[in-house]
Design a protein around this nucleic acid. Structure first.
Length: 407
DNA sequence: TCTGGGGTCCTAGGACCC
DNA sequence: TCTGGGGTCCTAGGACCC
């Protein structure tokens, strides 16, 4: 079985059998499609509503096992065991219990890595998965050394393809080799302070921030370091030239960013529009061009965001150019309703804030489906630029139509 | 017809300011 | 030989993560 990226573009997830058959992560679907059919591999479009909901359920279980849970990605979380008085053997057992509970309540298999730093915990988790032991603990010098020696340098969290190659060229093959380098060398060759943090983390010295889940049924958490930006971008099903179509796309994307903003209780000062040509066309100085609009006061109001985004688009758009991708990026984020007051402009002249209207909009769209109510500037149900999703599985846990079927 | 999307952090050059 | 120094903003790009 394989799962495809948005627009059914690339292979982004593969079962063990598909891996054995030689299908690679990130391979373009259209290139391997005949081979997939020949091998009778089941193909699925990605289904983020389903994954998001299952992820939420797993996190719910995790939060019963530690005071602090940091949701790092859709399928990973850090648990804060500081201050817990469990001794090593009990900690191991605790990890196993956690895993059993997640399995029982969600049917999702997990692995647990326990270590003094995030980077070492990731490394331990990886070994747990490889060694089929499900829980791996690194709580003394000897175990850490063994684990580092068993890990290729490219498999360390924070070492990507480029750094891995560079390190290998220097004869640094394993995480242990990297940890053995002098600090100054690491600082010089591995992106400055970024590399330094990584190196210290490998030595069991926590250097990465603890960012607990913002979630918050009851907030007694440290100040949210929060996110700095929020985007919605899409590749088009086919290239778009016309300002009208692009404008509809950008308005639709702006509305999505507005929804995300309100869900997180944030407001944005800066609205960036991105417009991209064909990334794969040879020779063209392709790439993405951007335009930024500054809002006088931070807002989470969809009409204002849309207006700003469309203004930016008009500045970017060149007639006759084939655009393959567009997006809206919001930055300069702050907590909604806690913004700087405006000194010189009388309140009556400020852009209108319509929290109730936005709340009503979100309620309707949550209840009756995305885009049930939208701005006229946004695109209708089947826009020309929308891509494919040919093999979508049902979102059983979130889609009320499917819930009825299950009944 | 055809190659994902959402993030973070860091660096650099050009245009501009005083 | 020799060209000020300290800023900001904008845009772009490189590295990494999932």
């Amino acid at each position: 079985m394989v799962v495809l990226s948005n627009n059914d573009g690339c292979l982004i997830s593969r079962s063990d059998e598909a891996k054995v058959l030689g299908f690679k992560m990130g391979e373009p679907y259209h290139q391997v499609r005949p081979l997939l059919e020949l091998s009778r591999v089941k193909v699925f479009s990605s289904n983020y509503a389903l994954y998001g909901d299952m992820s939420r359920r797993v996190v719910q279980v995790l939060s019963e096992f530690a005071a602090g849970v940091e949701v790092y990605s859709i399928d990973e979380a850090f648990l804060d065991f500081r201050g817990m008085s469990l001794l090593a053997p009990d900690l191991q057992r605790y990890g196993e219990q956690l895993r059993e509970r997640v399995w029982r309540d969600t049917g999702i298999p997990t692995c647990v890595g326990i270590a003094p730093s995030k980077t070492l915990a990731k490394l331990a988790n990886r070994l747990a998965r490889k060694q089929k032991s499900s829980v791996k603990m690194l709580n003394n010098e000897a175990d850490c050394q063994t684990a580092l020696a068993q890990t290729l340098v490219g498999d360390v969290w924070g070492i990507g393809r480029r750094y891995a190659r560079k390190l290998r060229e220097q004869g640094i093959m394993t995480a242990a080799d990297l940890a053995a380098q002098p600090e100054s060398w690491v600082r010089r060759h591995l992106g400055g302070v970024v590399g330094l943090r990584l190196w210290r983390e490998l030595h069991g010295q926590p250097c990465l921030e603890w960012n607990p889940a913002e979630d918050g049924d009851d907030e007694q958490l440290p100040p949210a370091t929060g996110r700095h930006s929020l985007t919605h971008t899409r590749s088009f099903g086919r290239p778009q030239h016309e300002l009208t179509a692009l404008s509809e796309a950008v308005a639709t994307f702006a509305a999505r960013t507005g929804e995300k903003l309100r869900r997180h209780g944030l407001a944005a000062h800066l609205v960036t529009v991105l417009l991209g040509t064909d990334r794969y066309a040879p020779g063209i100085d392709s790439a993405t061009r951007t335009a930024v609009a500054h809002l006088p006061i931070a807002t989470d109001d969809t009409p204002l965001l849309t207006q700003a985004a469309r203004r930016g688009l008009r500045r970017l758009h060149r007639p006759g150019v084939a655009y393959h991708r567009a997006g809206v990026l919001l930055s300069g984020l702050e907590t909604a309703g806690q913004g700087q007051l405006y000194l010189f402009t009388p309140a009556a002249q400020l852009p209108p804030a319509r929290p109730q209207l936005m709340a009503a909009l979100d309620r309707l769209n949550n209840q009756f489906g995305r885009q049930t109510v939208r701005l006229a500037a946004a695109a209708g149900p089947k826009p020309a630029w929308e891509g494919w999703r040919a093999y979508q599985s049902p979102a059983y846990t979130t889609d009320w139509e499917n819930l009825w079927q299950v009944k």
